[in-house]
């Protein structure tokens, strides 16, 4: 299968005063056309920064991409100018942002905000763009009659649908969804997720799903990559990760979830907190919280190793 996007050794840093925050430290993954990868990890693991890196939208001047490649159909997006990137953004690669309440411009109608991308990337006339935008609204479950309403007239779930319509307006080949359901009520979460899955299947869009919700991943993803302190510490197919998690951090994540078919008295949390990203350890960044780590883990750089076909982990104890 053809690889749609291949991220190789992506490194992103932020300058924070005199300190340097290493947000993304050598992330590599690839995605085939029509597939969905789940990028999982706790807050601060570098998921969103990775996504912004792919879009080449890392907020300057504080943030900088320090190295790596983002190959989209063989072309390195990181070597493109901002001008060239604008042809890709919103057109071939789109992004859905986490907080629907703040991601829409309050002074423009939702219809105009959906049609804006069409004006930028297609040669449609104003009328055709309006019709297409209304069609997009119907597809995400908003009546087209609400075209001329403003974001403040929509509920959170409806706003997120608008944002999804904006992202999908130009039928992108890759959709990056950054915690699209986190800010929504649980009932609305299921609806939105269902809708996203349907549209993805219809349009054959590839997707990078960023979330910290393992339930969402199970619903919608084919592949999973678990991130910790700016690195992917375990990746593989959905089945490999869910049935056979190998990295102690991934194991910890699953142990901290309640299971419906087991009578669990107490959940087992992962002890401690993520290391300070301005001062990451030389060796394994999870060593200080890891139940199986020893002295050698702290000092030796952990390399990604394939333990079964397509299943990679960064842990010298388990590989």
């Amino acid at each position: 299968m053809e690889k749609l996007i291949e991220v190789k050794d992506l490194r992103i840093e932020f300058a924070s005063g005199k300190k340097i925050v290493k947000a993304v430290n050598g992330v590599s993954f690839s995605l085939e056309k029509g597939k969905t990868i789940g990028l999982v990890g706790e807050t601060g693991a570098g998921k969103t920064t990775t996504a912004l890196g792919i879009m080449n939208l890392v907020p300057a001047p504080a943030g900088r991409i320090r190295g790596g490649e983002v190959l989209f159909k063989g072309e390195d997006l990181l070597t493109k100018t901002q001008q060239e990137m604008r042809q890709t953004r919103g057109n071939r690669i789109s992004m859905i942002f986490q907080d629907p309440m703040t991601s829409l411009n309050p002074v423009f109608t939702v219809g105009d905000q959906i049609a804006e991308g069409l004006h930028l990337h297609t040669k449609l006339s104003a009328l055709e763009a309006t019709v297409k935008a209304q069609d997009m609204m119907e597809r995400v479950g908003i009546p087209a009659a609400r075209y001329n309403e403003y974001p403040h007239q929509f509920s959170g779930g409806m706003k997120q649908r608008v944002i999804i319509a904006i992202a999908l307006a130009c039928s992108p080949e890759l959709l990056i969804a950054d915690e699209p359901t986190t800010a929504l009520d649980v009932t609305i979460q299921a609806q939105v997720l269902d809708m996203m899955r349907n549209i993805r299947n219809k349009l054959n869009t590839s997707m990078i799903m960023i979330t910290h919700d393992l339930g969402v991943v199970k619903e919608i993803c084919d592949q999973v990559a678990v991130m910790y302190a700016g690195q992917i510490i375990e990746s593989g197919s959905l089945k490999q990760i869910y049935k056979n998690p190998q990295h102690p951090y991934t194991e910890g994540l699953f142990k901290s979830l309640p299971k419906i078919n087991e009578n669990t008295e107490r959940l087992i949390p992962i002890k401690g907190i993520m290391p300070d990203p301005t001062n990451l350890p030389e060796g394994c960044s999870f060593a200080s919280r890891c139940p199986i780590a020893d002295k050698s883990c702290v000092n030796i750089r952990q390399l990604s190793k394939e333990i079964e076909k397509g299943h990679f982990i960064r842990c010298m104890k388990r590989s």
Binding site: R86, L104, A167
Partner: peptide, 22 residues
């Protein structure tokens, strides 16, 4: 610094339009 400015950039809108319009 608002999120909707990032949304406009993610659409592929030019920097001039992002500032002057959004």
């Amino acid at each position: 610094r608002q999120d909707y400015i990032r949304t406009a950039r993610a659409k592929g809108q030019s920097e001039k339009k992002v500032i002057m319009k959004h």
